[in-house]
């Protein structure tokens, strides 16, 4: 059995360290656009929507893990956030794959990871809502759901960071590292 609090702490810390290292590494490079993507309000809206949903889902799940069982109002909020999530993640995935080629490597990789972890997170719930599996299998499904959910949250975090540090081609800041003629 997985020790979830410990797993959450370890994976979150590792992700943050990797992100920090990546940020530091890219920061020393000459400033130049890392993406040929122009920002769009739709993209930002979908990204923000998914991010908020994932944040709420993660927060309520963490509360269940650290404070006590996932039940009562916490469970209700968790389930309530799942509704918008399934809609937004569909649109986000379609919109994201159209634009993904124009993203940087980290953003693209984390986008694909978001899709993959969403499959696991959502799949386990869809399956568990059918009268198919018994209690033991349901416990296992919930374990898988937790693992994929945590991974989804971290991938979303990485994706947001990657998108944030990207410089779209239409918004080039005056470069300090490139000599002006």
């Amino acid at each position: 059995m997985i020790d979830y609090p410990q797993a959450i702490l370890v994976t979150t810390t590792t992700t943050l360290l990797v992100l920090g290292a990546y940020f530091l590494a890219t920061r020393r490079r000459p400033h130049r656009p890392t993406s040929n993507l122009r920002r769009s309000w739709l993209s930002m809206l979908l990204t923000a929507g998914v991010a908020v949903c994932v944040a709420v889902l993660t927060a309520t799940a963490f509360r269940g893990t650290f404070v006590g069982e996932l039940s009562g109002w916490t469970l209700f909020v968790h389930l309530a956030a799942a509704g918008p999530f399934v809609v937004l993640i569909s649109l986000f995935s379609i919109w994201g794959v159209i634009r993904a080629r124009q993203r940087g490597t980290l953003a693209r990789v984390s986008f694909v990871a978001i899709l993959f972890t969403t499959l696991g997170t959502l799949g386990t719930i869809v399956v568990s809502m059918q009268p198919v599996f018994g209690t033991e299998e349901m416990h296992q499904l919930l374990d898988v759901h937790r693992v994929f959910g945590l991974a989804l949250a971290l991938c979303t975090l990485v994706y947001l960071c990657a998108v944030a540090i990207e410089r779209p081609s239409g918004q080039v800041a005056p470069s300090k590292g490139i000599e002006q003629p």
Binding site: A82, V87, I89, S93, T118, L119, L122, G123, V126
Partner: peptide
């Protein structure tokens, strides 16, 4: 959720 699952899988 089932539709979303299909869309995400396809994407």
């Amino acid at each position: 959720a089932t539709i979303a699952l299909g869309v995400v899988a396809a994407v």
